[in-house]
């Protein structure tokens, strides 16, 4: 039995959407280095559709894989749908995570919600 599923290892070894969006419409960052996990998500949003998403992660294999999978799950989706993303959906899409690594999927969910909150905050500021 390997530590992680093949899906986790695939997303860890070949993470999707790695990088930074300089003129992002929403940026979210969660975790802290003290605990050993930090995720940062950058969103590009057009007409309430997530047209691009990038991430940077400091963390273990499952943290990197969770970030990668979470970005895949929301790419091209309407923001309202992305807001519904759960950590469970991230973990399931990865064919499961070990129990003590579930918090990595929680961080991924929170990072995305954080980025969306940032987007909404910026949007309402612009509207005002």
């Amino acid at each position: 039995m390997a530590l992680y599923s093949e899906k986790v290892m695939d997303h860890f070894r070949n993470p999707r959407n790695v990088g930074v969006i300089e003129d992002a419409d929403g940026v979210g960052e969660v975790g802290n280095a003290k605990c050993g996990d930090i995720m940062k998500i950058y969103l590009k949003i057009d007409d309430d559709i997530i047209t691009d998403v990038k991430f940077e992660t400091f963390g273990c294999g499952s943290a990197i894989a969770s970030s990668s999978m979470a970005t895949e799950l929301i790419k091209g989706k309407p923001v309202a749908e992305a807001m519904e993303l759960t950590n469970k959906a991230v973990a399931e899409a990865l064919d499961g995570l070990p129990d003590y690594k579930m918090h990595c999927s929680v961080l991924a969910e929170e990072a995305i919600k954080n980025a969306l909150d940032d987007y909404y905050a910026k949007k309402s500021q612009n509207n005002n």
């Binding site: 290892m9 860890f12 070894r13 050993g36 400091f58 963390g59 273990c60 294999g61 943290a63 990197i64």
Partner: peptide
């Protein structure tokens, strides 16, 4: 500095 040990181990394993 700036990285986490488990991902380092997994990639060294590769």
């Amino acid at each position: 500095e700036g990285i986490e040990g488990e991902s380092l181990l997994l990639l060294l394993d590769d």
